[in-house]
Every structure is written in C-alpha cells, then in structure tokens.
Amino acid sequence: YKPCFVCQDKSSGYHYGVSACEGCKGFFRRSIQKNMIYTCHRDKNCVINKVTRNRCQYCRLQKCFEVGMSKESVRND
C-alpha cells in the first residue's frame, strides 16, 4: 500500500476512498459519526504528519477531506 495520504505513516489499506493508516481511519470515522466540530488555534494550515497529526484535529480533518476521504462511505453502525 501507499503511505497514509493524510499523515504519511504506514498505511493499513484503503479506507474511505484513500490509502490511510489505522489512526487516521479511526479519527475520520469518529469525527464523522459524532459530527465533531473542531477549531484550529493557529492559522488553519498546520502541518499534518506522523509526529504532528494529534496536535490539531481541525487541520487533520481538513486534510482528510483534501486527500479525498469520503464521509458518505462512513457507516453509522
């Protein structure tokens, strides 16, 4: 598999339409299922990588959408 499109960590396969790691897969699923609203405490362009991905949930979710993750493919079960 290609590296995670969101944070470049080791991917566990294709999730919600893109190559993603377990961490970003779970983060995206929880964010969508719980209708989470995050805020960025900087200027909405935080670097998201394996080391920084937990620092800003707003920018991490934005990057999930930017790389093509589909909220329609998240099931509500």
Rank of each mutant, 00 (worst) to 15 (best):
Y1K: 15
Y1F: 12
Y1C: 11
K2F: 05
K2R: 05
K2D: 11
P3A: 13
P3I: 10
P3W: 06
C4Q: 00
C4E: 03
C4L: 01
C4I: 00
C4R: 01
F5W: 05
F5E: 04
C7L: 01
Q8D: 13
Q8N: 10
Q8L: 09
Q8V: 03
K10W: 10
K10Y: 14
K10V: 11
S11C: 04
S11N: 15
S11Y: 04
S11L: 06
S12T: 13
G13P: 07
G13D: 13
G13E: 09
G13A: 05
G13N: 07
G13T: 09
G13R: 05
Y14H: 14
Y14V: 13
Y14S: 09
Y14E: 10
H15C: 11
H15L: 08
H15N: 10
H15Y: 12
Y16C: 07
Y16H: 12
Y16T: 09
G17A: 05
V18H: 04
V18R: 02
V18S: 07
S19N: 08
S19P: 09
A20P: 02
A20H: 00
A20N: 03
A20T: 09
C21H: 01
C21D: 00
C21K: 00
E22A: 06
E22N: 05
E22W: 04
G23W: 07
C24E: 01
C24T: 02
C24L: 03
C24F: 03
C24P: 00
K25C: 11
K25D: 12
G26Q: 08
G26E: 14
F27M: 04
F28V: 02
F28E: 00
R29Y: 05
R29S: 13
R30N: 00
R30C: 02
S31N: 03
S31F: 06
I32P: 00
I32F: 03
I32H: 01
I32W: 04
I32Y: 09
I32R: 02
I32M: 08
I32V: 12
Q33N: 13
Q33P: 01
Q33S: 10
K34R: 07
K34L: 13
K34V: 07
K34P: 08
N35H: 04
N35V: 07
M36I: 06
M36K: 11
I37M: 08
I37Y: 05
Y38P: 06
Y38F: 06
Y38V: 04
T39Q: 13
T39M: 13
T39L: 13
T39Y: 11
C40S: 01
C40V: 01
C40G: 01
C40K: 01
H41E: 14
H41D: 12
R42I: 08
R42T: 10
R42D: 09
D43N: 09
D43A: 12
D43V: 08
D43T: 11
D43P: 04
D43Q: 10
K44G: 12
K44T: 10
K44P: 03
K44Y: 05
N45Y: 04
N45K: 12
N45S: 09
C46D: 04
C46T: 03
C46P: 00
C46G: 07
V47W: 09
V47Y: 14
I48T: 07
N49W: 05
N49A: 05
N49F: 04
N49Y: 04
K50H: 13
K50R: 14
K50Y: 14
K50G: 14
V51M: 15
V51I: 13
V51N: 10
V51G: 09
T52P: 07
T52Q: 12
T52C: 04
T52N: 12
T52A: 13
T52W: 09
N54D: 15
N54P: 11
N54T: 15
R55F: 05
C56H: 03
C56R: 00
C56Y: 03
C56I: 00
Q57P: 14
Q57K: 06
Q57M: 09
Y58S: 08
Y58C: 12
Y58T: 03
Y58H: 08
C59N: 01
C59Q: 00
C59I: 03
R60I: 02
R60G: 03
R60F: 13
R60S: 03
R60Y: 11
R60H: 15
L61G: 03
Q62M: 10
Q62K: 14
Q62S: 11
Q62P: 01
Q62G: 05
Q62L: 10
K63A: 05
K63G: 03
K63L: 05
K63T: 08
C64S: 04
C64V: 03
C64H: 02
F65S: 05
F65N: 07
F65H: 06
E66T: 11
E66A: 08
E66W: 07
V67A: 10
V67G: 07
G68Q: 02
G68W: 01
G68I: 00
G68T: 02
G68L: 01
G68C: 02
M69A: 01
M69T: 03
M69R: 02
S70N: 13
S70T: 13
S70L: 13
S70K: 13
K71H: 06
K71I: 09
E72C: 09
E72H: 08
E72A: 08
S73M: 13
S73C: 07
S73D: 14
V74N: 09
V74I: 12
V74Y: 05
V74H: 07
V74Q: 10
V74A: 12
R75Y: 14
R75G: 13
N76P: 14
N76S: 14
N76R: 10
N76C: 08
D77A: 07
D77R: 06
D77M: 11
D77N: 05
D77H: 13
D77Y: 12
